[in-house]
Simulated scan of single mutants.
Amino acid sequence: MKYKQQKKAILLLADGTIFEGKSIGTDGTAFGEICYNTGMTGYQEVFTDPSYFGQLMLTTNAHIGNYGVNDDEVESDSIKISGLVCKNFSFNYSRVNAKGSLENYFENENLMAISDIDTRAVVSYIRDKGAMNAVISTNLDIESLKEQLTTVPDMNGLELASKVSTKNTYFYGDEDAPYKISALDIGIKKNILRSLAKRGCYIKVFPYNTTFKEMEAFNPDGYFLSNGPGDPSPLKDAQEVAKEIIKQNLPLFGICLGHQVIALANGIEIYKMHNGHRGINHPVKNIITGKGEITSQNHGFVVSKEAVEKHPDFEITHVHLNDDTLAGMRMKNKNCFSVQYHPEASPGPHDASYLFDQFIENIKGSKS
Results as ranks from 00 to 15, higher is better:
T138Y: 06
K243M: 10
A177C: 11
C35R: 11
S162Y: 09
A242E: 06
G300F: 04
N286Q: 02
N362W: 05
A197R: 10
N37M: 03
Q44P: 06
A134K: 09
M1I: 11
V284L: 07
Y67S: 08
E293I: 07
G157S: 06
Y208D: 09
G21H: 03
L235Q: 11
L252M: 12
M329W: 10
G365E: 14
I245D: 08
I246W: 03
R95S: 11
V74I: 13
V303D: 01
G16V: 13
E216H: 12
N97A: 09
I81P: 00
N219C: 09
Q260L: 12
L355Y: 04
S115D: 14
L145T: 05
T38S: 15
D324T: 10
S233D: 09
I294N: 06
S195K: 08
I136L: 06
N333P: 02
N97Y: 13
L193K: 06
F91P: 05
I142H: 08
G25H: 05
G42A: 08
T138S: 13
R95W: 10
I288D: 09
G83T: 01
S115Q: 14
E109Y: 14
E107D: 11
A238M: 03
G228I: 10
D128W: 00
D237I: 14
D174M: 10
Q248A: 04
V164H: 10
S94V: 05
P220V: 11
S51V: 14
G365K: 13
G348Q: 03
Q297H: 03
A238E: 07
T325N: 15
E244H: 03
D128I: 12
A14R: 15
I34N: 00
H274Y: 06
K367H: 02
L56H: 01
V74H: 00
E73Y: 12
M215K: 05
C35N: 13
V69E: 02
K291F: 00
E33D: 14
S165E: 05
S76L: 02
G258D: 09
T38P: 03
T26S: 05
G83H: 02
V85L: 02
V339H: 05
L84I: 12
N108A: 15
I363M: 12
A263S: 14
I294V: 14
F253R: 03
G228P: 12
H274P: 04
G328T: 04
E33K: 13
I142L: 13
A217F: 07
T169K: 14
H63W: 11
P312G: 03
G365C: 05
G100T: 11
K334M: 06
